[in-house]
Design a protein around this nucleic acid. Structure first.
Lengths: 131, 131
DNA sequence: TTCATATACAACCATTTGGTTGTATATTAT
DNA sequence: ATAATATACAACCAAATGGTTGTATATGAA
């Protein structure tokens, strides 16, 4: 269910937004529970304005959204965008795994068409990560 | 199969490295097929030195490795690290989904202990992304 | 040996980033 | 009305980023 393809600079913004431990922590926090900007700011050893900027970066990247509630701005996580970049990474994995399979296949073909059976290539394996 | 926990700054480096379209393209390319730095440089509209720097950033982040072959440096993708940060993102998703389930549960409890049955809360749903 | 190729790396520059402080505005509480 | 709270935003600064050019070094080919 792809809504629309993200541009390069949109993806840039998402990864850049996640390239900071404070911002990753904010994302984690608001995924657990929505929080106002000042509530978030209490937790970090930096000025309110700094946290405000971090939230702005996350918002510009589409990773969180803000909604007014009285005088507060409530920050909440946007799962769709996280899901999107996670899929991008899993695409990388898929590419690699397919390459691994192709390599194994080449080895198998070589063994049957050009060289005598090779015990190593008959059981050809390429490391594929698992959990 | 976690080898060792990455530090914040290591994760920072990975995300920062991926926050550039040229570097993401390099990763994609070397996941498909290993390539020397100059071979990679041919493809991009920037100086060799610039591409060299991009590769260095990816290498520092552990996303690719370099190995000498004669006068060339062959760049290859490091799937383990990609897998690692992909898992980090899927953790975010898990957190969110659990929260969604908890919210649904709270709604259910409210309905049975404090208020008359509510047609809306009995079918409580929270959007969960799917493919 | 000499020439071409592949890389390394330093120096430089403009822009962005991540922080600060200070000031202004809107909302809630007394 | 006044004070306290929550946010917005500008101006400033040091450091990092993403590019450049130039120079040096190592390897392979003729």
């Amino acid at each position: 269910m792809v809504v629309y393809e993200l541009t390069d600079s949109e993806v840039d913004a998402m990864f850049r937004a996640l390239a900071d431990a404070t911002r990753r922590d904010i994302v984690n926090r608001v995924l657990h529970e929505n929080a106002s900007v000042s509530r978030l700011a209490e937790r970090y050893d930096m000025s309110f304005a700094a946290v405000q900027k971090h939230v702005a970066v996350l918002q510009a990247a589409g990773l969180v959204t803000k909604s007014r509630r009285g005088r507060e701005q409530i920050v909440s996580g946007n799962l769709a965008s996280i899901h999107h970049i996670q899929k991008l990474l899993s695409h990388f994995e898929t590419v690699w795994k397919q390459r691994a399979l192709q390599m194994a296949e080449v080895l198998r073909d070589d063994a049957t068409t050009e060289a005598p059976p090779n015990p190593a290539s008959s059981g050809a394996r390429v490391d594929i990560p698992h959990d």
